[in-house]
Simulated scan of single mutants.
Amino acid sequence: MVQLLEAENGERLVRFAYTTGDSARRGPVTLRAKDLQRMQKLLERAPGLKDALRG
């Protein structure tokens, strides 16, 4: 799961997490090449997140 969050002060945060059922879990995240390819495609539908990841 990749989420774009915004702090109260307007700072943009990107959360990488995994899920077990309906609960988001934090921890180390390892992405495979196919995961990165899928993420690139999904980012086309999330321009704010795509922009935040560009830095």
Rank of each mutant, 00 (worst) to 15 (best):
V14C: 06
D22W: 15
R45P: 00
D35M: 07
P28G: 13
K41M: 04
Q40M: 12
G21N: 07
D35L: 02
A46S: 12
R54G: 13
P28V: 05
R26E: 07
D35I: 05
V2F: 14
V29S: 03
L4R: 07
E11N: 04
T19F: 14
F16N: 07
D35A: 11
Q40I: 12
A46D: 05
D51W: 15
T19N: 03
E6Y: 04
L36P: 02
L53T: 05
S23P: 00
G55T: 06
P28Y: 01
L43Y: 05
R15E: 04
V14M: 01
L36V: 15
A7G: 01
V29Y: 08
K41H: 13
A52R: 11
L42H: 09
L13W: 15
M1A: 09
V2T: 07
L53E: 02
D51G: 04
L49W: 12
L5M: 07
F16T: 02
G48E: 10
R15K: 10
D51L: 13
L42D: 08
G48Y: 09
N9A: 03
A52W: 06
M1Y: 06
K34S: 15
R45V: 05
D51Q: 14
P28R: 11
K50R: 14
G55L: 13
T20G: 05
V14K: 08
D51V: 04
S23G: 00
G10I: 04
A24W: 12
R25L: 06
E44M: 13
D22Y: 02
A24T: 05
T19E: 03
A7R: 12
K50L: 14
L42N: 13
A52Y: 10
R26S: 09
M39V: 06
E8W: 01
L43G: 03
A33H: 13
G10Y: 05
F16W: 12
G21P: 10
K50G: 03
P47G: 09
R12G: 01
Q37Y: 06
R12Q: 10
A24Y: 14
R32L: 15
L5C: 03
T30W: 13
A17Q: 11
Q37R: 10
R12M: 03
R26F: 08
L43A: 13
E44V: 11
P28K: 13
L49C: 04
P47R: 15
R26Q: 06
R38Y: 07
E44D: 12
A46T: 03
M1I: 07
L43M: 04
P47M: 12
R15G: 02
G55W: 11
E6R: 05
R32G: 06
L43F: 09
G27L: 02
A7Y: 03
R54Y: 07
R32H: 10
T19C: 09
D35P: 02
R54L: 15
L49P: 04
T19P: 00
R25Q: 12
T19S: 09
L4C: 01
P47Y: 12
T30Y: 13
K34H: 15
T20W: 10
A7F: 01
E11P: 00
E8Y: 01
A46K: 15
Q40E: 02
R12N: 00
R26L: 14
A17N: 11
G21M: 05
G55P: 02
